[in-house]
């Protein structure tokens, strides 16, 4: 290692770098060696060769320091290993919790569907026995269609919204790439797409498998978008059933589609759409009995109970 040529003008930064690069060894060693050589050169009265003890003391001191170094290194290693293990355990526990709770929710949803179907069957049987009931049944079927509690299928349009991909120059060191908050899909964006589809003549809409009914709310809680109070994750597939020619044309000409396209330009939000020949939309679960009154005093046989039958056995 050679020191930079003296007397040459260097900038401060360059000289700092030179110093760091050239002076890898503590200069104190050279100084101590020079001092030792000086001491050895001048004759000291009463002392020839240094005795064994000082030499030994130095070695012991070095050994002690190295013991400290070893201790430091192994303790740090263990802390790091322990920390990683603990993080992994916590993550695993959280993952298990999420899976368990999701399974419980799925089971409850399945149970709810079963019970709802059962209630519907019982109701249909009860209604089918009387003429007034049959009239009510017809009206009910139309109402159910409108309330999105029946599964439907047909041709339509699939609109996909997704968060903007992370910028290419983001620094992924030390974790997940930084997500730009402006590029995230907001609840208002999903609302915009859904409203645009309704206005364009959609007959039924679902978002990531959640059917949008008359009482469906699309809103945001924390970072997640909730539809029917169930969190949905990007990408958001908004499927709309409607006229296979008119629906896409009307939607793409709408103000809403224009706004979404501008979001893509300004913030990189992913906005895609495709015409789909056959869409299957699931039934919504919004069939809560809120109001009931007897049809006529004689025909009412317990059908006017104030309780909500769908909440039984939940």
């Amino acid at each position: 290692m050679s020191a930079p040529a003296p007397g040459r003008q260097r900038s401060l930064g360059a000289s700092l770098l030179d110093q760091v690069l050239a002076e890898t060894l503590d200069p104190a060693y050279a100084q101590a060696a020079a001092a030792r050589a000086e001491r050895a050169a001048e004759p000291v009265a009463g002392a020839g060769r240094p005795s064994w003890l000082p030499r030994h003391r130095g070695q012991l001191l070095v050994a002690l320091t190295l013991l400290l170094a070893g201790l430091l290194a192994s303790v740090t290693y263990q802390e790091a290993a322990l920390g990683a293990q603990g993080r992994e355990q916590t993550r695993q526990a959280l993952r298990d919790d999420i899976r368990e709770e999701s399974e419980a929710t799925d089971a409850l949803v399945a149970q709810l569907e079963d019970l709802t179907a059962q209630v519907g069957r019982t109701r249909d049987q009860a209604l089918a026995t009387t003429v007034t009931g049959q009239g009510a049944l017809t009206r009910l079927a139309a109402a159910e269609q409108g309330a999105a509690v029946l599964a439907v299928s047909g041709p339509g349009l699939r609109v996909t919204l997704d968060d903007a991909p992370p910028p290419a120059d983001s620094d992924p060191v030390g974790g997940a790439p930084e997500q730009n908050a402006a590029g995230l899909v907001q609840d208002a964006d999903v609302q915009l797409a859904v409203n645009g589809l309704w206005a364009a003549g959609a007959e039924a809409i679902s978002i990531n498998g959640q059917r949008v009914g008359a009482t469906t709310a699309i809103r945001q809680a924390g970072g997640a978008i909730l539809v029917n109070f169930r969190p949905i994750a990007p990408p958001y597939d908004i499927e709309a059933i409607g006229d296979s020619e008119g629906l896409p044309r009307a939607f793409l000409a709408s103000y809403e589609a224009d706004t979404l396209a501008r979001l893509t330009l300004d913030y990189g939000v992913v906005f895609d759409f495709a015409r789909v020949g056959d869409l299957d939309l699931p039934a919504g679960s919004g069939a809560e009995l809120r109001h009931a009154r007897p049809l006529e005093p004689a025909a009412a046989s317990g059908g006017a109970a104030g309780t909500d039958p769908t909440t039984d056995g939940g």
Binding site: A63, L66, L67, G70, L71, L72, A73, S74, V75
Partner: peptide, 13 residues
């Protein structure tokens, strides 16, 4: 002796 010290330190830790 110094190397021994290092080894003892690692093992102790």
């Amino acid at each position: 002796i110094p190397i021994l010290g290092l080894a003892v330190g690692v093992v102790l830790g």
